[in-house]
């Protein structure tokens, strides 16, 4: 074995001995872990979807469970009970022709 080969072999023996390297301490690893936790990005939480904002009147209608037409009926019934009140007794109130003009045309033709 030449001098160079002996030197190479000796160097390899030294590399083998040095390969394990110095160990990190628990204290140092704990410090690194704390750094990591501080740098940890916050996961993206799903943002709650807000329902579209409706105006308050639409809300009232929806809450009542009534359609527009039905609500109109309620309104008419509430606001004009006197106007719609009629009787079949013509002498006591008004005749049908007041409400339905032309209902009495038959009497004109009869003349």
């Amino acid at each position: 074995m030449t001098r160079d080969q002996r030197d190479d072999a000796a160097l390899e023996a030294l590399f083998d001995a040095g390969r394990d390297g110095p160990a990190v301490t628990d204290d140092f690893m704990a410090r690194l872990a704390a750094d990591m936790e501080n740098a940890l990005p916050q996961p993206d939480l799903p943002t709650p979807v807000k329902p579209p904002r409706r105006n308050w009147l639409a809300g009232v209608f929806a809450a009542s469970g009534l359609s527009g037409a039905a609500l109109a009926g309620v309104w008419i019934g509430f606001a004009m009970p006197q106007t719609l009140e009629f009787t079949t007794e013509t002498e006591a109130g008004f005749e049908l022709s007041y409400l339905l003009p032309g209902a009495d045309l038959g009497s004109v033709f009869d003349e």
Binding site: A23, F28, M36, L40, P41, P43
Partner: peptide, 24 residues
């Protein structure tokens, strides 16, 4: 995984890299 907020992945990566880098 760490970038997505996974701390455990961060610890695993730390356990791999830190001793090697420290030796170097």
């Amino acid at each position: 995984a760490f970038a997505n907020g996974d701390g455990r992945a961060g610890r695993d990566l730390l356990a791999r890299l830190a001793p090697m880098l420290f030796g170097y």
